[in-house]
Amino acid sequence: MIGPAFSQEQCVIHPFDFQVDCINDVYSLWQNQTQRVLLIAGCGAGKTYMASLIMKTITQKTRYRRRCLFLVDRNNLLEQAADEMTELGVDCSILQGDRLVNWNASVLIVSCGTLESRIRSSGLEAHHVFSQLFGRVDLIVADEAHDVCWRDSYIQLQNYYLPQKTRFLGLTATPWRTKNDEYLGQRFDEAVCAPQPPDLVKIKRI
């Protein structure tokens, strides 16, 4: 079991009911031994927010230290993710370029480009780099999964960490690829879908 069921009472900034439902649906799939889950939610549904609550629960509600990775493929998303996590009280740090990183943070927000650069410059196989940088990882979140999950670094992370029972969570508002032979079912086993924009309008989320 990766974490307990989630409820609104666990958060200072209360989530909407549909966000609680999405989070618990993700947990339910993980608890049924589905390692790779895709969360499909349109713009304004709070994908990063829901992922942040999941990571906070995983890293704070256990007796031993747990680590999560949050992968982005564009540098402008790093600060945005860090700001949202910090507001929710998530212990996080950014790994990108030469900036100072807190390796003891529970959540590392990682630039795919930086990770791929470190693998190339190390002269080592990817799994050796992951072992040195991250050690054990309990959850890997792929932001903009429709793009990130086709990056070399994500494929290498999945190849290394899937056998270790690491969970994977993809976030996307656009669950498709432009190439006919590429689809998100190649990277994920099950999907959780948030309400569509017309329903979000009704509950005044967007």
Rank of each mutant, 00 (worst) to 15 (best):
F18P: 01
I58N: 04
E190R: 15
D181I: 06
L88N: 12
A145E: 00
Q10E: 13
Y160W: 12
D143G: 07
H14V: 11
C22V: 09
C92T: 12
C112H: 09
Y49E: 08
D181V: 08
F168E: 07
L71C: 13
N159G: 01
Y183L: 04
D181T: 06
E144F: 07
I109R: 09
Q31R: 14
T59S: 15
A105K: 02
Q132L: 12
V201D: 12
S117E: 13
K56Y: 13
I206P: 06
P198C: 02
T57E: 12
K56S: 13
R151S: 11
I40V: 15
Q164W: 08
H127M: 01
I140M: 10
V141Q: 02
L38P: 05
L108C: 09
C149F: 07
Q186C: 06
Q10A: 13
T62C: 07
P15C: 00
D143Q: 03
P175R: 09
R177F: 05
K204V: 02
F18H: 03
F16W: 13
W176T: 00
I23T: 06
C149Q: 01
H146K: 05
G3E: 01
L29P: 00
R99N: 14
C68G: 07
D152N: 02
L29G: 04
L108R: 06
S106T: 07
W176I: 01
S117I: 04
V90E: 08
L133C: 06
T48Q: 09
T48A: 03
Q31W: 12
D199F: 05
A5N: 08
Q60W: 00
Q96V: 08
S153G: 06
V20G: 03
F188I: 06
K165C: 09
V137F: 01
P195W: 09
S117M: 12
W103P: 02
T174V: 08
Q196G: 02
Q96C: 15
A191G: 06
L53T: 00
V107W: 11
R136K: 12
Y27G: 07
E144R: 00
D73Y: 12
P197T: 00
V192C: 11
C68A: 12
V201S: 04
V110A: 11
F6Q: 00
F16P: 01
S111P: 01
V201W: 14
Q10I: 05
Q31M: 11
L38N: 08
I40S: 10
G89F: 13
I54L: 15
N180A: 14
V20C: 04
W30K: 02
D25R: 03
L115D: 04
S122M: 13
V26Y: 03
I40G: 03
C112I: 09
W176E: 03
T178D: 02
E144L: 05
R67V: 00
